[in-house]
Design a protein around this nucleic acid. Structure first.
Lengths: 242, 242
DNA sequence: AAGTGGTCTAGACCACCGC
DNA sequence: CGGTGGTCTAGACCACTTG
């Protein structure tokens, strides 16, 4: 994993940027980098392209490659390097105790919306799993998820109190690797207010969408209602075409 | 622009996916595609990698390349192909009449937060521009932006009633090409309620962050308070590493 | 005109998957 | 084992920017 050449180049360049080794916020040209790292120019391009994607540098055809000044100034913002949820099975937990309270666990027929989002036929069944996520004892997210039973026949209330994705990875050898999500906001309803300890005028953030397995199978349709103080989604946006 | 080979391959493969030309949701292997398109395998890989990024297909090493079933099922969601604001100078306007009402336009010293975000020294001045964006006559966004005067000395209230980015591109030959944004939500304050026609318990979505020029110069620090019904940010998330 | 990044090629070899 | 995608190379030629 870590012995890939382009990864090593990426890491080294990042370190050198952080150590302020480059003058004028400018990197050497690609052909020079190719020589000094003793790798092909293609590999240098690959490394630089990823750094562009991460927002660390900018390339300008005809002029050169430049360091994003904000990367130096405010590196903490870049800790996620790309997209970041701030809320999922595997994030946000660093340094805090996260726990899960199971609110509901049942098997139901998939309604038309669920059918469409999970690519199911009529008469197929799904688990409905409603969970409350807490961090350091504070309720943060009400999460309602729908999973086709055929994709995880062994799912149990006990499993669901922990990480479902982790279970799938370990026990079923299926990796959840992609998602397509929408982020919105709404006034809180009575249930939100009760479970998330919100007052009437305090809203919830909503992240709803579909999680996919490695092979493209839609795995879970999920709707997360997030305490408004804890919704913080950071992202880079490239305003040009693709 | 459109005569790039990998672009043509991307467009053609998308059309073929849409026309359901591939069996089993599976694309031919890269070497076959290379032959049939009469281009190098590298170019095929480049095209496929972009389609992966857009969420159209999935690659599985050792097995093959597969079509994301949701791309066929629900193509409308994918109209943005990648990240999507739903709110900016150039989006959301399709088929609707958008207008701008200028609320405030002044030059002030940059406070410490602005200084940091725009990479300014002390004693530098910025425009403060507060605008209300309307779509079909309905107020949607209160936008407060800060722009260093040195980057756009010619800016005027008249210019600012239209698209600032467009002005920069046309008159100053500077392109705004990237941004780093945070998305949050909050209860609406009195001003939100008045300007966006919200009741007390209705929230605003907040998109705040920095826009950059082509060469990495931070150009504008902006905070947008969005009517909650109109905040809808769609995105793909790759849950693995980078 | 010189320098820089962008596109594209042709091919070698490796790593993983499934039969 | 054969088939698939992943990494890497060496080099040609093009497009844009700057002096």
């Amino acid at each position: 994993m870590a012995d890939l050449i382009y990864r090593k180049v990426i890491d080294d360049i990042k370190n050198r940027i952080f150590d302020d080794e480059f003058k004028d916020n400018r990197l050497p040209d690609e052909r020079s980098l190719s020589e000094s790292y003793e790798v092909s120019r293609s590999t240098i391009k690959r490394a630089l392209d990823i750094l562009v994607q991460q927002g660390v540098i900018f390339k300008k055809r005809g002029s050169g490659t430049f360091i994003n000044p904000l990367y130096l100034k405010n590196q903490s913002l870049f800790q996620y390097e790309g997209n970041n949820l701030g809320v999922t099975d595997n994030i946000i937990t660093t340094g805090h105790k996260s726990s899960i309270k199971l609110l509901d666990f049942q098997v139901t027929p998939a309604n038309p919306e669920i059918q469409q989002n999970l690519f199911l036929n009529e008469n197929e069944f799904v688990y409905k799993i409603e969970r409350l996520r807490l961090i350091d004892g504070k309720p943060i997210i009400i999460e309602t998820g729908y999973i086709p039973i055929k994709l995880a026949p062994e799912l149990s209330p006990e499993t669901v109190k922990k990480s479902i994705f982790h279970f799938m990875n370990q026990e079923e050898n299926k990796r959840v690797s992609k998602s397509f999500m929408s982020i919105m906001t709404e006034p809180s309803n009575k249930e939100d207010q009760k479970l998330l300890d919100l007052s009437e005028n305090e809203p919830v953030g909503i992240m709803a969408g579909t999680f996919f397995l490695d092979d493209g199978t839609p795995f879970e349709f999920s709707s997360m209602r997030v305490h408004y103080k804890y919704l913080n989604y950071n992202t880079f946006i490239n305003l040009n075409s693709d």
